[in-house]
Design a protein around this nucleic acid. Structure first.
Lengths: 234, 234
DNA sequence: CTCTGTTCTTGAACACGTTCAAAACGTGAA
DNA sequence: TTCACGTTTTGAACGTGTTCAAGAACAGAG
């Protein structure tokens, strides 16, 4: 059985699993994902190759485990960071900053996670079934960021905003991971400017003048995001 | 030497190369990219494995060759399709339709190309150095589509539009490749609606009322797309 | 034709992610 | 202690994309 899924497991087993994961992440950070082989990881953790596969379904699953931990761990931090802030821009910034801070030291190997972003069939894609839980938790942060702010948003837009903001944030992270500028200054500038635009647009969105724009945008969103409960033909 | 790069080459060599490529594409279409091994391809083309690698750098290079051919082949078709059309929406639609028609029968294995879209370091990514030529030719189509239309667009926006439209079209194709709805009706709806929005926005864009919006959007674009001639630190 | 250098072809071998049958270990019952 | 049984650990082996040293086929010069 997959120990990752079991509730039980001996203390020793937990230690072994932890050792494998942490050695893997260390190696990923040091040399990158591709330059690290499963044999390297097993050697570093003092186990046979098979053991690594006993605890983790695949090499990707190690990255996935990191992603899951990251999501859980940043969750509390975000709750705290949101705190009593009321300004929307500040609240969004808070969510985003926590993520960047956590991911910072792992930026290089995070590419291993995001390179599959465009393929929703890939387990590691942020759009995949396997990452659904993480994705929903992440979207929830934006839900909260919106709810707690001193700004009334149009009803019709409301259900779509968390998804859109999450997507926006995903784009920022993607940009950051592949940002080769020293210290990733380009990402910094992008975050600043784009956050201004996003919050600016949200502030304007409830103006009656924007109603037709909103209508058409929502139509588009609904055409795109129709729940995929349909038949899976082809 | 890489025969793909050489100008010369015997007739027989060209035939072998062609046979390998076409057998590969047939197999990709039939069983998909992942289910097709290089050994399968070599067997189907009646050559040894090594021969496949003599003509193509890698398995990905086979997809790349298809992509390159597609770009060249659709080029003329697009020129013709643009013809004397003057309406912007019709012109954009023409460019996009040619692409979809050409890619249609290969939709399934096109995922092999686009799944690396998010990784600009991957040779197959539409953002990679290796696909630059194709990308630039593709962007040029949108340049033409804009130039030939009966619509004056704001000067400041002008240099960015081909890139933006190309990006938009790339998004459509990506959506289409992973669209599981029967007959990809969702994509159809998306194209219809989004083309309306895009052209609508372009028509409005020159209104003086839109000037501040344009300014801020352009600032953002420039922050993002700064030529990556800088140092490659990290 | 013969010789020579280039082009093309071959398939064994490599490294990798992954699988799996077998062994070792741990634990609680008798 | 001994036994049985589930858990953990092992490493040989598989299939994959890819490399490479060696040879075959060919083209042109003499």
């Amino acid at each position: 059985m997959q120990p990752a899924l079991r509730s039980g497991g001996t203390r020793k087993a937990g230690e072994t699993r932890g050792r494998i994961l942490s050695e893997a992440l260390t190696l990923f950070r040091e040399r990158g994902f591709d330059q690290t082989t499963m044999r390297d990881i097993a050697r570093a953790a003092n186990v046979a190759i098979g053991a690594a596969y006993y605890y983790f379904e695949s090499k990707d699953a190690l990255v996935m485990a990191f992603y899951g931990e990251a999501s859980k761990s940043t969750h509390e931090q975000i709750e705290i960071a949101l705190g009593r802030k009321t300004d929307l821009k500040a609240r969004l910034r808070a969510v985003i900053d926590v993520k960047f801070e956590y991911f910072g030291p792992n930026r290089k190997f995070l590419g291993a996670l995001l390179r599959h972003a465009a393929d929703p069939d890939h387990p590691l894609s942020p759009f995949s079934e396997q990452t659904r839980e993480i994705r929903e938790r992440d979207m929830h942060h934006f839900s909260e960021a919106l709810d707690g702010c001193n700004l009334r948003l149009p009803e019709d837009l409301h259900p779509h905003l968390p998804k859109l903001l999450w997507l926006y944030q995903m784009g920022l992270i993607l940009f950051w991971v592949y940002d080769r500028s020293p210290g990733q200054v380009r990402t910094e500038r992008l975050v600043d400017k784009s956050l201004g635009i996003v919050t600016g647009m949200l502030k304007l969105s409830k103006s009656p003048f924007m109603r037709p724009v909103r209508r058409i945008a929502i139509e588009l969103l609904e055409a795109v995001s129709e729940e995929t409960a349909g038949v899976e033909k082809q």
